[in-house]
Write a protein that binds this DNA or RNA. Sequence first.
DNA 1: GCCAACGTTGGC
DNA 2: GCCAACGTTGGC
Length: 152
Amino acid sequence: MQYWLYKSEPNDYSYADLERDGRTHWDGVRNYQARNFLREARVGDRVLFYHSNTKVIGVYGIAEVVAEAYPDPSQFDPHSRYYDAKATADEPRWSVVDIVPVRAFTKPVTLATIKADEAFSDFQLVKKGNRLSVMPASAGHYQRILELSEDS
DNA sequence: GCCAACGTTGGC
DNA sequence: GCCAACGTTGGC
């Protein structure tokens, strides 16, 4: 099993939205490196669901991959904010995966907590200048996030 | 192929 | 709201 961290601005799509929907396709990724990570996801992989650009930044819950990469429908939709005129059905540029909620944290594991914990010193999330919206996490990172989510 | 200009991300 | 970091675009 692999582990990932997916970023979302909660104004756009929050963990609560995922729980409400029950399932979603992770669309709108428009960065090649992030897309390539999406394509590596396999059914059963676990996802740390991260809220960025908000008051309390951090991991709000766990999700699970239930469908592997397929073409992002929004790239073909001229009315979508994610429309890409250079993408065609024959040669799609962008991918989505489907995820479902697993567990919401009662309290988020904040970015400040993550930065202060040595277990994450090699985590891409805390590297300087990191802007990736989809990135791999190690099993150790994942376990440590779960532990921290249980502290109250 | 280089690189300046520009747009976006995302923490603070 | 600011701004550093960084990816993309497009002229040459």
